[in-house]
Structure formats: structure tokens, C-alpha cells
Design a protein around this nucleic acid. Sequence first.
DNA 1: CTCCTATATGAACAATTACTCATATACTCA
DNA 2: TGAGTATATGAGTAATTGTTCATATAGGAG
Lengths: 122, 122
Amino acid sequence: MIDVNQETCCNVVHQEAIESVEQLELSVVEQLSESFKALADPTRIRILYNLSRRELCVCDLAEILGMTQSAVSHQLRYLKALRIVKFRREGNTMYYTCDDAHIIGLLQMALDHVTHAQGRDE
Amino acid sequence: MIDVNQETCCNVVHQEAIESVEQLELSVVEQLSESFKALADPTRIRILYNLSRRELCVCDLAEILGMTQSAVSHQLRYLKALRIVKFRREGNTMYYTCDDAHIIGLLQMALDHVTHAQGRDE
DNA sequence: CTCCTATATGAACAATTACTCATATACTCA
DNA sequence: TGAGTATATGAGTAATTGTTCATATAGGAG
């Protein structure tokens, strides 16, 4: 069965191959990329790593990361919007934590790979 | 012990808190973000998902994704540079696969979370 | 109330990104 | 050789992103 309507590219589309993989729903793909985007930036990785180990205030994070309070605060806002970090107020000070098992799991899994698979094939 | 030299932010840096978390090496953080960046784009997620299930040519991918051959080829170059996808030539046709256990593991873990934890607290 | 401090936020900007378009490359077949 | 095809790639572009700077908000101490 030679197939139809592919303006996309070439003529040698393997129809059977195309149909053999069940596609992900686009909303699922969006959710996936949302999670990975949160972890795709070095600053956010370091923030999440620290907040997964200990409750810290904005100021502590700025000191640890060697970044401005504003830069840290912007990233926290991003993570807050995704509900990845939680926070509580104590006077003027905001304390943040990360207990998102999903995100921490992804981070830990990637970390295990990087720190373990050293000196093997890659 | 009140601490020293923090021009970063406020004066209420919790020295004990800062020192309690062992920091990641920056090179490790870079490697982590490299992996997550690869998965942070919907197009790449769909490409990797398909290539983890089956060997496909550029043309098939373009058809599946409803994108131009060029766009797909650019993303494949990106993934190739990170050694996340492999390929073989058969005449004019390039067949790509993804057997990177690390990346597939991350993708699968995130996918499990999205498709499982539906209707619970998030 | 006023001043001080910790954090949040809007605007601006440079860097990066994902795509399009045109073209180059590399292979097949005659 | 030369035409045809599948893929790769460089330049250009619009959109996004991570930061800085200046300022706003909100609570505490007096």
C-alpha cells in the first residue's frame, strides 16, 4: 500500500513504521517538557538540589550560588508557579523547600548516572 | 559565629545552613542541565520517544511530527552531537535510533508520573 | 506613624533557541 | 557522466530566557 498526502518531505515514507508507534498526547508532551525545562538550567538545578536537602531562605541561596537576590528570587518565582517549591514566611524572611518527589526523582536519577557512569563508555 | 564578606544580599545569612549542604561540582551541574535540556523541548521529546520505540528515517519522523524535514534534521543534529541518537545509512536514507538508557529512563520516569498521578493532588 | 530589612517584581537587554528558506552534500540509478 | 532523491547545513528571524537594575511590597522595631 503506497501512501497518500505527504507534502512534508520525500516519497519513501514507511507507512507501516509510522503507524507502529503509538503517539503521545500533545498535552502529555507539554507536561513532560515543562518538568524537564524546570531542570534544564544550571541555576535552577542548584537551587532545587539545595532545597531538596534543606530549607533555606532567599538570602542563603543567593550566598550559596554567588548570585544576586533578584536573580534567585526570579527563579524561585518560576519554580513556585510550577508548584515545584514550597515556602513559608517567618517575619521578613521567606523559607523555601522542595519536596516534589517527581522532580527530585528525576534530578537524583540523572545525578546517579553522571556520578556513577564515569570512566565507562562515556 | 557571625559570618563575613557577603555583599550578595542581606545580613541574616544562616552560616550553618549554608555549610550543611554539600555542593555539586559545577561540571556535574553542567552535565545534568545538558541532559535535561535535551528533553526540554516538545519536538525533541516526540523524536526521542519515537526513536526509542523504533528505528525511523528522517522522512518518517517529519511525517509523524507534521514538521519539515529541515526542522527534524536540525534537531537530530543536536541529539547526534550529544550522542543521544545513533544512525546508520542505507543508500540515501538515514535511519535513526535512540538506545540511550539514561535519557530513555528519564523520559520514561517522567512519563510514568504524568500518566499515573492523574487526578490525585496535582 | 517612620525607618529598616527581606523579598518580589517590572522593564530592559543580551544570549540562546527552534524554526524557515535556500542550498549543499552524498548517494542511487540510468 | 548527469538527473533525481534523502538528508545536512548555513543564514536569517521571531520568540524565549536568564540576568541586571531600579523600585515596590510587606513585615519588624522603635
